[in-house]
Amino acid sequence: MESFQAMLHMGGYGGYVWSAYGVGIAVLALVLVLSLTSARKAEAELDVLQQARRARRGKDLGGTDSESQE
């Protein structure tokens, strides 16, 4: 417990050191989460659109799915 206290204290600079690391991790995590959700969202939307288009094409061509190699 002694050393845990010392670690938090950081020789009197605890507030500065831990805020630097805390904000660092928070900012990088935020950018990661935003990038991940934007990629997933865009790819899911594209999937829906492409499937709808494929289904329509398939119907137009009487069931032969010529777009499947896309």
Partner: peptide, 18 residues
Amino acid sequence: ILILRGRAEIAGQKIRVI
């Protein structure tokens, strides 16, 4: 991050085209 955002941008471009 470059890969994730690049993927989002490419998907976004395809969505616009469709």
